[in-house]
Simulated scan of single mutants.
Amino acid sequence: MTRTERLTAHTDIATSLALLSDHALGDLVESGTPLGTGIGGRSTLVEVDGRRVFVKRVPLTDVELRPEEIPRAAADIIVRYAPLAAAVGDFSRRLVHESRLTPYPHEEVRAVVQDMGIPASR
């Protein structure tokens, strides 16, 4: 696999995962093939866009579970806009590193915005 093919596959998989809801991502991981338990957590093999993806299930620490670590308003913003940021961030990375002709991901952004419940603008 060439570097470009690897980056394209990574980008496609990252975008597909970023567009999943928390529930859908959890279902995907639960449906995977367990590979065992090692240092730090369990591992699973899932399939995304026809490619095998290794998942390391690392439990959250006590510090990460404390709600005071991130102000609630900031956490709400992150949760709400992370999928959109992932789609646009991926576009930006491809634009800079791969090709100035990279098309803007209109459909991906529309899908994320629709999932977020934001009314469509014209």
Rank of each mutant, 00 (worst) to 15 (best):
M1Y: 00
T2L: 09
T2R: 06
R6I: 09
T8M: 08
A9D: 04
H10K: 06
H10T: 04
D12Q: 05
D12H: 02
A14C: 10
T15M: 00
T15P: 00
S16Q: 08
L17S: 02
L17H: 01
A18K: 06
L19G: 12
L20N: 03
S21W: 12
D22K: 11
D22I: 12
H23F: 15
A24C: 11
L25W: 09
L25I: 09
G26N: 08
D27P: 09
E30P: 11
S31V: 07
T33A: 12
P34K: 02
G36Y: 09
I39L: 14
R42A: 14
T44K: 03
T44P: 01
V46F: 00
G50T: 00
K56E: 01
T61F: 14
E64K: 10
L65G: 13
E68S: 14
A75P: 08
D76F: 15
I77V: 15
I78C: 10
V79T: 12
V79W: 12
R80G: 07
A82Q: 10
A82V: 07
A87I: 12
V88Y: 13
G89K: 07
G89R: 06
D90E: 09
R93E: 06
L95D: 04
V96E: 04
E98D: 12
L101F: 15
T102W: 05
P105S: 04
H106W: 12
E107D: 14
E107K: 11
E107S: 13
E108R: 09
V109T: 02
A111W: 07
V112R: 01
Q114V: 03
Q114F: 07
M116A: 05
G117E: 00
G117S: 01
G117P: 02
G117D: 01
P119L: 10
A120L: 15
